[in-house]
Simulated assay, not measured.
Amino acid sequence: MSDPEALEDVPLPERRQRARGHDAARSAIFGNIAERRLPGAILLHGPQGIGKATFAFEIAAAILAATGDEDAARVEEQVAAMSHPNLFLLRRRPKDGKGYYTVIRVEDVREVRDSLHHTRGRAGQRVAIIDSIDDCNPSAANALLKTLEEPPADTTFLLVSHRPGQLLPTIKSRCHNLALRPIADTDVAAVLMEQGGAIDEAALQRAVALAGGRPRRAFETLALDADSALGALQAWLADPLRHPAGVGLQLADALGADAQSTELSFAREMLDDWMADEARNAAMQPGARMRLASANDLWDKAHALLAEADSINLDMKQTLAAIFNAIRKHVSLTVPVSAEPR
């Protein structure tokens, strides 16, 4: 099955089946597989682009090999070709014409559910991967919940989620939760090099630096122009007060020129990461209630501005300029007294 989120010239997750990093999670899950203590459903959640879907297929292949009657190499070949009769995959489906549906529909969930109730095609456990459950519309999510509440025998569900906070609490309560985090820079570099082809050392280092532990973001960086404004944004976010106020306006002009560009989408992810890290760091710092409150207000304001810009097609340059100004204001209000703004 094709993947609506696939990047050009990057193998689909089912073809990779080897996720870099995530060693602690791998050890725990593979231990359960070896001991035949498989949960009915596993929720793999974390930031987008860190290899969750690839890891899901790695887990699936391990389950099918451990519980079936074929060796691991043969199982992995079938998983890569999506031909193993005990493996089921639910993604957003292609339309009859061009493109993909924007959501996973209730009829898609029912189709997989009905298939799981048929006689299995081979000995061993069955595995159903939902990539990603975030794409389920409300009806599909409720249909999936009913399936998790009354699951088919000898079936493990692997649910991939980039935004677990938005899932139905009842779905999360039915799953063994496995939180995954961005991987090490060395692992990101290894993923890029595994793809083959010559990658200039400077381009490799730039991609790794901008990736923030997300291999998908690194691949996206390689597809961008070398003079992309993303590097300047990264430098600005490292210390907004070090730069003149006009730099924020320059960044807004460069990044907001095309509201549909990959560069802007990338920049929005970087801003999300920065604001989330700022709130997380403030929450962990004793006596930083003002900084945490300011970080939370910043998050709410930035997302409200972006949502408004998206819904009524406002000028993205002005939206970004307002967000950069709010970030600068937040930092200036919460910077230690000993650190003078520059």
Results as ranks from 00 to 15, higher is better:
residue 10 V to M: 05
residue 274 W to Y: 15
residue 218 A to R: 00
residue 184 A to F: 02
residue 291 R to P: 03
residue 2 S to H: 14
residue 157 F to V: 09
residue 305 L to R: 04
residue 76 E to G: 02
residue 310 D to Q: 10
residue 293 A to S: 13
residue 44 L to N: 01
residue 220 E to H: 04
residue 42 I to G: 02
residue 228 S to G: 08
residue 228 S to R: 08
residue 248 G to C: 10
residue 158 L to N: 05
residue 176 H to A: 04
residue 307 A to M: 07
residue 126 R to C: 00
residue 312 I to V: 15
residue 160 V to Q: 11
residue 102 T to C: 03
residue 207 A to P: 03
residue 192 L to Y: 03
residue 78 Q to F: 01
residue 158 L to F: 08
residue 63 I to P: 13
residue 248 G to D: 12
residue 75 V to Q: 09
residue 55 F to Q: 00
residue 319 T to F: 05
residue 96 D to P: 11
residue 213 G to Y: 02
residue 284 M to S: 10
residue 243 H to F: 13
residue 172 K to Q: 09
residue 118 H to L: 15
residue 157 F to Y: 11
residue 314 L to G: 12
residue 114 D to Q: 08
residue 129 I to Y: 05
residue 108 D to E: 07
residue 295 A to I: 10
residue 269 E to P: 12
residue 295 A to G: 06
residue 191 V to W: 01
residue 73 A to Y: 00
residue 279 A to R: 04
residue 229 A to H: 08
residue 247 V to T: 14
residue 227 D to H: 13
residue 103 V to P: 00
residue 10 V to N: 01
residue 232 A to Y: 01
residue 241 L to K: 07
residue 305 L to K: 02
residue 149 E to G: 02
residue 223 A to E: 12
residue 235 A to S: 11
residue 244 P to D: 10
residue 296 N to I: 13
residue 341 P to M: 13
residue 35 E to T: 10
residue 330 H to Q: 14
residue 62 A to V: 05
residue 309 A to G: 14
residue 240 P to E: 08
residue 184 A to P: 03
residue 196 G to P: 02
residue 208 V to M: 06
residue 150 E to G: 11
residue 152 P to E: 13
residue 209 A to N: 09
residue 87 L to N: 02
residue 236 W to D: 03
residue 266 F to D: 07
residue 131 D to A: 10
